[in-house]
C-alpha cells in the first residue's frame, strides 16, 4: 500500500507544489532580469528586493473580479484555461529530476514514474495544450483573441513538427523512449547528447521558444497588434491559469531539454575520471542547475531580441528548421548504421 499509493501520491504533491512555486518565482525572475537588462531595479517594494512580489501578485489575481463576456460561449470559456493548465502540469509525471536516493530507510527514485514511451507521452500531452489557446480565442467571441488563437495554433503546429523530428534523432542515439533510459544511455555513452547532436539541440531550443509563445516568437500575444492576445477577455483567476500554464510550459521545455541534451541529473563530463569530485553534488542539484540555465536563456532572449513578423516566423519554421531537422535525422541514421 505504501509503495503503491502513498509514495507516488507524496511525490505528486511535492512535484506539483514545487512546480507552482517555481512558476511564480519564474515570473519574478523574469521581471528582475529584464529590469537589469534595461538598467532598472524591477520590483523592490514587497519584501527585501521584492522577493514577496509573487505572493502579492497571486493575492491580487485571486481577489480580482472574474468576468465572463456577455456573448461568450460560457462552458468553453471556462474549459479553455483548464485545458491549457492541465497538460502543462501532467507532463511532470515522467520528468526524471534525479536518480535514486535513500530517504527514511527507503530507496526512492526522484521521478513520479518511468514509462516505456516517456518521450512520446511528453510530446502527445503537450500537443493537447493547444486546445486551451484555440478554444479561448473562439469562446471569447471577440476579434483579437480569435486572430491571436489562429496565429498561435498555426505556430504551435508548425514548430511541433521540427521539434518532434529532433526528438527522433535523440531517440536514434539512445535507443529508448524512456526519459530515465535516455539519461542512463548518455551516462553509458559518456557524453551529453548536446555535443553529438548540436543541430538537434539548437533546433529544439528555437522550437521551444516558439512552442511556449515566447519572444521573439510571441506573436499570439503581440500587444501592439492584438490588444493582448488570446486571453484579452480573461480576468482574475482564469487569466492567472493561462499565465501559470505559459510559465509551467517554459519549465517543461527546460527540463525536457536538460534531460535529452544535457544529461539530466548527470554531472558535467560523466566520462572524465578526475572530475569525479563533482559527484559530491547530488544529481537533482545538477538537474535544477541545468534547467535554471535554460530558464535564464529564455528570459535573456526575450530581453534581447525583437519580435518576428508572422511571415518570417512561418518561413523560419517551414523552410529552415524542418528541412534542417530532416537532414539531421537522415545523417544521424546513416552515421549510426555505418558505425554499427
Amino acid at each position: 500500500m505504501v509503495e503503491l499509493v502513498l509514495i507516488p501520491l507524496l511525490k505528486i504533491i511535492v512535484v506539483l507544489n514545487a512546480t507552482l512555486l517555481g512558476v511564480t518565482y519564474m515570473v519574478l525572475l523574469e521581471r528582475k532580469v529584464i529590469a537589469w537588462a534595461q538598467s532598472r531595479l524591477g520590483p523592490m517594494r514587497v519584501g527585501p528586493y521584492g522577493v514577496l512580489q509573487p505572493v502579492a501578485d497571486a493575492m491580487k489575481l485571486m481577489l480580482k473580479e472574474d468576468i465572463t463576456p456577455a456573448r461568450a460561449d460560457k462552458w468553453v470559456f471556462t474549459l479553455a484555461p483548464i485545458l491549457s493548465m492541465v497538460p502543462a502540469l501532467v507532463v511532470y509525471a515522467v520528468i526524471p529530476f534525479g536518480d535514486q536516493v535513500h530517504l527514511f530507510g527507503r530507496q526512492i527514485s526522484l521521478y513520479i514514474t518511468d514509462i516505456n514511451v516517456g518521450l512520446l507521452y511528453v510530446v502527445s500531452v503537450t500537443s493537447v495544450g493547444v486546445y486551451g489557446i484555440i478554444l479561448a480565442g473562439y469562446s471569447s467571441n471577440s476579434k483579437w483573441p480569435l486572430l491571436a488563437s489562429l496565429r498561435a495554433s498555426a505556430q504551435l503546429i508548425s514548430y511541433e513538427i521540427a521539434i518532434t523530428l529532433t526528438l527522433v534523432s535523440v531517440v536514434l542515439m539512445s535507443g529508448t523512449l524512456s526519459m530515465v533510459g535516455i539519461v542512463t544511455s548518455q551516462a553509458s555513452q559518456g557524453v551529453w547528447y548536446a555535443f553529438i547532436q548540436p543541430t538537434a539541440f539548437i533546433i529544439f531550443f528555437i522550437g521551444g521558444l516558439a512552442e511556449t509563445n515566447r519572444a521573439p516568437f510571441d506573436l499570439p500575444e503581440a500587444e501592439q497588434e492584438l490588444t493582448g492576445g488570446f486571453h484579452t477577455e480573461y480576468s482574475g483567476m482564469r487569466f492567472a491559469l493561462f499565465f501559470l500554464a505559459e510559465y509551467a510550459n517554459i519549465i517543461v521545455v527546460s527540463s525536457v531539454a536538460t534531460t535529452l541534451f544535457l544529461g539530466g541529473w548527470l554531472r558535467p563530463f560523466p566520462n572524465v575520471e578526475f572530475l569525479s569530485f563533482l559527484g559530491v553534488v547530488p544529481g537533482w542539484c545538477w538537474f535544477l542547475l541545468k534547467s535554471f540555465v535554460f530558464l535564464y536563456l529564455f528570459i535573456w532572449v526575450r530581453a534581447t531580441l525583437p519580435r518576428y513578423r508572422y511571415d518570417q516566423l512561418m518561413r523560419l519554421g517551414w523552410k529552415v528548421l524542418i528541412p534542417l531537422a530532416i537532414a539531421n535525422l537522415i545523417l544521424t541514421a546513416i552515421v549510426k548504421v555505418a558505425l554499427a
Partner: peptide, 18 residues
C-alpha cells in the same frame, strides 16, 4: 498498449482534431 495510446493522443487528439 502504451505506444498506441500515446500515438492516439498525439496524432488524433493533438493533430487531426486541431
Amino acid at each position: 498498449a502504451e505506444f498506441v495510446a500515446a500515438i492516439q493522443v498525439l496524432v488524433y487528439a493533438g493533430g487531426i482534431v486541431v
